[in-house]
């Protein structure tokens, strides 16, 4: 049963096609890595999933709902930058994940106390409890992205979209963010789409790796054709899931 259905999606800006004939089905709980060269429509595809843009043809459905026309609660997102609110403290940012949907965008009275308690639990889980009252500008890049993910998850979205979330981090921080993301995923079983430049990151974290590329290429007019999904790898077990030996008996194991 497919959870996210992308059906024959085209997207063009003016006369310039960006994506063409993109179709993919994703099961609930899958982690999809999206890779491809620059300008191959990865981020456009993510914006379409986010419903920040509507495709010029085709449609995207999440959990069988009619195609969304604007971003909403069912989709959480973390961008490379600007994903947290700079004027709120770390704790307020997490509370905002639950409170912005309210008429005034905040909680009052008893609800507020409870929301702060839940936020503190979230902060403890993502390792930011010691900076709960600081402003995001005082945090390191990795802490800001952890906060952004925590904030997005506080809203309990159906799918989580990550647009090069670790692109601006140094390699060490990036590795610890991988562990952090894998832990979170084990706990929540969330469906995740992640755009990344880093192939090994895509294969390490993803269950599937979608490669975007242009199948047709006109050397005289490089922008004449759009990109589509050219490869759809099964990325479990380091990208070689079908070579895993599952039988126990009468099997000759390689030495």
């Amino acid at each position: 049963m497919s959870f996210v259905t992308v059906d024959n999606v085209f997207q063009s800006y003016g006369t310039r096609p960006i994506l063409e004939r993109v179709s993919v089905e994703v099961k609930e709980g899958e982690f999809i890595s999206i890779v491809g060269a620059s300008g191959c429509g990865k981020s456009t595809f993510l914006r379409l999933l986010l419903a920040q843009e509507t495709p010029s043809r085709g449609e995207i459905r999440v959990a069988g709902q009619p195609p969304a026309r604007e971003p909403g609660l069912d989709r959480g997102v973390v961008f490379q930058k600007y994903s947290v609110f700079p004027h709120m403290t770390v704790r307020e940012n997490v509370v905002a994940g639950e409170s912005l949907r309210r008429p005034w965008g905040r909680f009052f009275g008893k609800e507020k106390v409870e929301a702060r308690k839940r936020a503190d639990e979230t902060l403890a889980r993502i390792g930011l409890d010691h900076v709960a009252d600081a402003y995001p500008a005082t945090l390191s890049g990795g802490m800001q992205q952890r906060l952004a993910i925590g904030q997005a998850l506080a809203a309990r979205p159906r799918i989580l979209l990550l647009d090069e979330p670790f692109g601006a981090l140094d390699p060490g921080t990036r590795l610890s963010m991988h562990d952090f993301l894998q832990d979170l995923r084990r706990d929540t079983g969330m469906t995740v789409f992640m755009v990344t430049h880093d192939l090994s990151e895509g294969f390490k974290l993803g269950d599937r790796v979608l490669v975007f590329d242009k199948p047709r290429w006109d050397p005289h007019d490089p922008n004449a054709y759009g990109a589509t999904i050219t490869y759809d790898f099964d990325a479990r077990n380091g990208g070689i899931p079908y070579q895993t030996i599952e039988e126990d008996t009468h099997v000759l194991r390689p030495a």
Binding site: G72, V84, L100, P103, G105, P157
Partner: peptide
């Protein structure tokens, strides 16, 4: 940044909440 507005949208903020809680303080 557009990203910040979109983020608020994904957290369920209405236009008036985005104006009061995201745009106005900044």
């Amino acid at each position: 940044p557009r990203e910040m507005i979109v983020k608020a949208e994904t957290l369920g903020a209405s236009t008036s909440v985005i104006a009061l809680r995201v745009a106005l303080p900044q």
